[in-house]
Amino acid sequence: MSDDSSDAALTYHVNGDLVPADEATVSVRDRGFMYGDGAFETLRIYGGAPFEWAAHRDRLHRTAQTLGFADAVPEDLRERVDATLAANDLDEAYCKVSVTRGVQPGKLTPDTDVDPTVVVYVAPLGRGGVEGSPVWDEPATVQTVRTRRPPAESLPADAKTHNYLPGILARLELRRAATDDFSADEAVMRTTDGLLAEGATSNLFFVDSGTLKTPSEDVPILPGVTRSVAIELAESEGFSVRTGKYTLDDLRDADEVFCTNSTWEIRPVTSVDGIDVRVGPMTRLLSRLFDERVERAHYGGVDGEGAEGESGGEGA
Rank of each mutant, 00 (worst) to 15 (best):
M1I: 07
D4Q: 10
S6C: 05
A8I: 07
A8V: 07
L10Q: 05
T11P: 03
Y12R: 05
L18C: 01
E23P: 06
S27N: 08
S27D: 10
D30V: 04
R31Q: 04
Y35T: 06
Y35R: 13
Y35H: 08
E41N: 08
T42S: 09
G48R: 11
R57D: 11
R57C: 08
L60C: 04
A64Y: 12
Q65D: 15
T66Q: 09
L67Y: 06
D71Q: 10
A72G: 10
P74N: 08
P74R: 01
D76Q: 10
D76K: 12
E92K: 04
K96R: 15
V99L: 01
R101C: 08
P105A: 15
P105H: 13
L108V: 14
L108Q: 14
T109W: 09
T109K: 14
P110G: 02
T112R: 15
D113G: 10
D115I: 14
V118I: 15
V119H: 05
V122A: 07
L125Q: 12
R127H: 14
G128C: 10
E131R: 12
G132P: 10
G132H: 05
S133P: 04
D137M: 13
E138F: 11
P139F: 06
V142A: 00
Q143A: 11
E153P: 05
S154G: 12
L155D: 11
P156S: 06
A159E: 05
T161I: 03
N163E: 06
Y164E: 04
I168K: 02
A170W: 00
R171N: 04
R171Y: 00
R176C: 03
D185V: 03
M189V: 00
D193M: 03
A197Q: 03
A197V: 00
G199K: 01
T201A: 05
S202Q: 02
N203F: 01
L204F: 03
D208H: 14
S209Y: 06
S209P: 06
G210I: 09
T211S: 12
L212C: 03
L212M: 01
P215W: 03
S216W: 13
E217R: 10
I221L: 02
P223R: 12
A234P: 13
S236Q: 15
E237V: 14
G238I: 08
S240H: 13
D249E: 15
D250I: 05
D253T: 11
E256D: 07
F258Q: 07
S262N: 04
S262L: 00
V269A: 00
V269K: 00
T270N: 09
V272S: 05
V272Q: 00
I275E: 13
R278V: 14
G280M: 08
G280S: 08
P281D: 14
T283P: 11
R284P: 07
L285H: 11
L285Q: 13
F290D: 04
F290H: 13
R293L: 12
R293G: 08
R296Q: 13
A307K: 15
S311T: 15
G312P: 06
